[in-house]
Design a binder for these strands. Structure first.
Length: 597
RNA sequence: GGGGUCGUAGUUCAGCCCGGUUAGAACGCCGGCCUGUCACGUCGGAAGUCGUGGGUUCAAAUCCCAUCGGCCCCGCCA
């Protein structure tokens, strides 16, 4: 309740300090503060108010005998009222220290207070106490954002972006904005479309990434470009996937993959140093795609723990175990994981894993527990001594170990065991360490075979350059061709990826044709890029990182929504504003749109 | 598109399996008392469309069906 009905939109005085920033060294100073009421403790006489701003909480003391007017106003305040306070910083007596608060050595003896705004009781407490339903948090996001955890997360995100900008500026990169209204590209993810009022029946698309534009900038002579770019993809959401997200987008002229990797390594050193004061060790590990798949069964391995895959096909040559023998006869493979004695798997765990494996990959799980007197488990009696010895040698088996095995086509077995490995990592808490295992994955295949569409599809995107050594393979063995592409993985999360691009018009056309575009279609869709490549386009390449995922790692959270100010729910709805919403029919008419439902 | 899980005061939850008084607790809220608290204490009070709709039953928060929404996952995400 403001003093007068004519409330003032201006504060009565300027702030001298942030509440949460005051310390014992400030004792004796007269200060002026603004903040929210975090708590009010009315002792009938003395009255305490915890005042909160973005830096934290400080205790205000109102004494009716010393200042009746201020005390009277303080009696009326409630949670989340916004106050302006003048007072003196006073050292607390030894008996009244609060070791829980950074400001606990002092308090503010209030002399003047004004209520700048009142508040309804907040629907949930503004602290980091018990978890509140996310739906409620998002509906009242402005209150959720006052919570210390969200304040911390968004400021870490800010520090990370600040560090990235400073670092790239220092390396002569130029920040350039590219359009949000751009051309639809029906391949890849689904586009968000924007109707054009002045071009009836035509649509812009929101960019899925500035890929083509940044390549065009290289042709345009900008040499080193970056942008914190907003990207849009109309696909189903996940804990780590939102319809709009930010990307650190980087492109440069004439780089070798090493140049990009070195640049990026330095960038992450800067980010971790400035945000968390953590020293990142260089250089990052590197694995080829093939090695990653062979050892970890995934192209984004979490290298904080072992449990690596082993090819056991050779050990089981000539086995009497029919499942394995048939597999080998078909040309399939057998891979295994050795689980050490300290990770005990109950029969129930093994059954659950087998079920999941069956339902997701359609593969069976074979397992054996290694005891002092031999193998135990359903397959033990089918496996002969020779195979046991060879398998034991191949993976280093000893009593107490459990051996998990999967047989099938190599392309399915390795990812399946890779999935199993991650489950084990989660089950035995191997993924919680805060060590930072950065790893580059290089030499990705250029193409993969799309079973559904019966054609080649790009593993990365169609503008990725093949490795020079594999150029000649393109015609006779395209699936064997490797790309000049690199992904950066941290603790099993893909932070970003990039490549050296194709800068030759003919090669670009050839790749597009290999992907199933006719020459005409290619020119219709990517004509401007092909044209640009025709005018002395320099060799170029770059990389892009998910800002939100980096922020997640820096904040130690599993949900993207905890590092974005205004995220959307799984149905891509914003519970606060109610977006998306219906629009006025007149708006639709102007846009030449009819909703048929 | 599919699978799982949750939905009960403002909030966090219990009750649901095994149907049966007036649907409970804590925090918060409102009022009284209280001069060193800091999640203040203390006394009292208000507060519920048990997500929604239908069904079974003498009787439904509880059982069944449908539907809506949150979250997690698969598909999808060049």
């Amino acid at each position: 309740m403001p003093k007068s009905e004519l409330y003032s939109p201006l504060p009565p005085w300027q702030r001298s300090d942030y509440c949460g920033a005051l310390r014992a060294g400030d004792a004796g100073r007269a200060v002026a503060l603004w903040g929210w009421v975090a708590a009010r403790r009315d002792h009938g006489g003395l009255l305490f108010v915890d005042l909160r701003d973005r830096e934290g909480i400080v205790q205000l003391l109102f004494n009716p005998e010393k200042n009746a007017a201020a005390h009277e106003i303080a009696r009326a305040v409630r949670a989340e009222f916004y106050l302006a306070v003048k007072g003196t910083v006073v050292k607390r007596s030894a008996a009244t220290l609060n070791a829980q608060l950074p400001t606990g050595e002092i308090e503010i003896v209030a002399s003047e207070v004004e209520i700048l705004n009142v508040s309804l009781p907040p629907p949930f407490p503004i602290d980091d106490g018990e978890a509140i339903a996310e739906e409620v948090r998002l509906k009242y996001r402005y209150l959720d954002l006052r919570r210390p955890a969200m304040q911390r997360n968004l400021r870490r995100r800010h520090l990370a972006l600040r560090a990235v900008r400073d670092y790239l500026d220092a390396h002569d990169f130029v920040e350039i904005e590219t359009p949000i209204l751009f051309k639809a590209t029906p391949e890849g993810a689904r586009d968000y479309l924007v109707p054009s009022r002045v071009n009836p029946g035509k649509f812009y698309a929101l960019p899925q990434s500035p890929q083509l534009l940044k390549q065009t900038l290289m042709v345009g002579g900008f040499d080193r470009y970056y942008q914190i770019a907003r990207c849009f993809r109309d696909e189903d959401l996940r804990a780590n996937r939102q319809p709009e997200f930010s990307q650190i987008d980087i492109e440069m002229t004439c780089p070798r993959p090493e140049d990009i990797m070195t640049l990026v390594e330095g960038m992450f050193v800067t980010v971790y140093d400035r945000v968390l004061n953590v020293k990142v060790t260089l250089p990052f590990a590197r694995l080829t795609y093939e090695e990653a798949m062979e050892r970890f069964g995934i192209d984004k391995p979490d290298m904080r723990f072992g449990l690596e895959l082993r090819d056991l096909s050779a050990a089981f040559t000539g086995t009497a175990f029919k499942v394995f023998a048939d597999a080998l006869a078909r040309g399939d493979v057998i891979y295994g994981i050795r689980v050490p004695p300290e990770m005990q798997l109950a029969r129930r765990d093994l059954d659950t894993m087998a079920e999941l494996l069956k339902s997701r990959q359609g593969l069976g799980l074979a397992w054996a527990k290694i005891a002092a007197d031999g193998w135990q488990g359903p397959i033990a009696k089918h496996v002969g001594d020779g195979e046991r010895r060879l398998a034991a040698e191949a993976v280093g088996l000893a009593p107490g170990h459990t051996l998990l095995m999967v047989a099938g086509p190599r392309g399915k077995v390795r990812p399946a065991l890779g999935e199993l490995r991650l489950q084990l990592g989660t089950k035995f808490n191997l993924r919680t360490s805060d060590e930072l295992r950065f790893v580059w994955i290089v030499e990705f295949p250029l193409f993969e075979y799309d079973e559904a569409a019966k054609r080649l599809s790009p593993v990365n995107h169609p503008f990725t350059a093949p490795m020079p050594a594999d150029l000649l393979r393109l015609d006779k063995e395209p699936l064997g061709a490797r790309a000049l592409a690199y992904d950066l993985v941290l603790n099993g999360e893909e932070l970003g990826g990039g490549s050296i691009r194709i800068h030759n018009r003919e090669l670009q056309l050839k790749i597009l044709e290999m992907l199933g575009y006719s020459r005409e279609e290619a020119i219709e869709r990517f004509g401007f890029l092909l044209d640009a490549l025709s005018y002395g386009a320099p060799p170029h390449g770059g990389i892009a990182f998910g800002v939100d995922r980096i922020a997640m790692m820096l904040c130690g959270t599993d949900s993207l929504r905890d590092v974005m100010a205004f995220p959307k729910t799984q149905k891509a709805i914003d519970p606060m504003s109610g977006a998306p919403s219906e629009v006025d029919p007149r708006q639709l008419k102007e846009l030449w749109i009819k909703v048929v439902s």
